[in-house]
């Protein structure tokens, strides 16, 4: 894979929330077809990392973010998304009054750069919803408004499948799911893991990784990648927890 260009790369990324430095220099590269997992204890700043990469206005960012070889560090979130970056939110926001269908149609049109005929869009939407075992009535509901945790997560994956990004970050997509929902969501993620695309799974537990096989596992602690290894690292973390890694990052920053 190494002769290929990464679909996504971070170069010494640092992120501040106000005065506080939360991400203290992260570099990584995701190549086409690769699934990476970022694991780390609660509160380690995993969500901050992916939200800042997407361009959340609350964060100050230093370093570089590359998408398909292009420096997108200074781009607005909507520009990044149109260029093919995607973030499945840990806590998707409700937008009452806006239906799932009208939201998705606007998003799909923005990503593809042109309007999609209503009928064609509808067929595609229904097909994808069926794939995720979602009730078609879902399309008429207000976006994330009154959704259960599982429904929200399914909707994030539905968006992933509809928007066909180049590179997607999935933030704790497994949390709050029962085992059946987890299987459905995992099958959606696997369907999205095509040879052209890069995925970055952010997770606290190894659970999702039983269903979605990562190629590379990173441990994120104290604002840095404490360790990067193959899928066996996830199992080791499951068995040993995170404490044993503490010493390896403790000193520096």
């Amino acid at each position: 894979m190494s002769e290929k260009r990464p679909v996504f790369a971070l170069e010494n990324l640092r992120v501040w929330v106000g005065e506080k430095e939360v991400v203290k220099g992260v570099s990584l590269a995701v190549y086409p077809g690769e699934v990476h997992a970022i694991m780390g204890p609660n509160g380690s700043g995993k969500t901050t990392l992916v939200q800042a990469v997407m361009g959340h206005p609350a964060y100050t960012v230093e370093g570089k973010i590359f998408l398909n070889g292009e420096d997108v560090t200074a781009r607005e979130p909507d520009e990044k998304a149109r260029k093919g970056m995607f973030l499945a939110f840990q806590y998707p926001v409700a937008v009452p009054g806006v239906t799932v269908a009208s939201f998705l149609r606007a998003a799909v049109a923005a990503r593809r750069g042109h309007d999609v005929p209503v009928k064609e869009f509808r067929q595609e939407l229904l097909r994808r919803m069926e794939q995720l075992e979602m009730d078609p009535a879902f399309a008429g509901r207000y976006l994330n408004d009154g959704f259960s945790g599982g429904e929200k997560k399914r909707l994030e994956i539905l968006q992933l499948l509809m928007l066909q990004p180049v590179f997607a970050m999935l933030d704790e997509t497994d949390s709050g799911l029962d085992i059946d929902a987890l299987k459905v969501v995992a099958s959606g993620i696997n369907a999205a893991a095509t040879p052209e695309r890069g995925l970055l799974l952010v997770t606290h537990y190894q659970r999702l990784l039983n269903y979605v096989q990562p190629h590379v596992v990173h441990v994120f602690m104290n604002g840095k990648l404490a360790k990067t290894a193959g899928p066996e690292l996830a199992l080791e973390l499951e068995a040993r927890g995170y404490d044993w890694l503490e010493t390896s990052v403790g000193g520096g920053a």
């Binding site: 997407m54 361009g55 959340h56 206005p57 607005e76 979130p77 909507d78 990044k80 998304a81 149109r82 995607f86 973030l87 939110f89 998707p92 926001v93 409700a94 937008v95 009452p96 009054g97 806006v98 009208s102 939201f103 606007a106 998003a107 923005a110 990503r111 207000y142 976006l143 968006q159 928007l163």
Partner: peptide, 26 residues
């Protein structure tokens, strides 16, 4: 809400319009 909609590729002003439209449409 604005960030969520923008993260899906929807430009800033269109995101605001969607939010306002939804707000009133309820």
């Amino acid at each position: 809400q604005v960030f969520y909609l923008k993260s899906r590729g929807i430009p800033h002003h269109q995101a605001l319009r969607l939010i306002v439209y939804g707000f009133l449409d309820q």
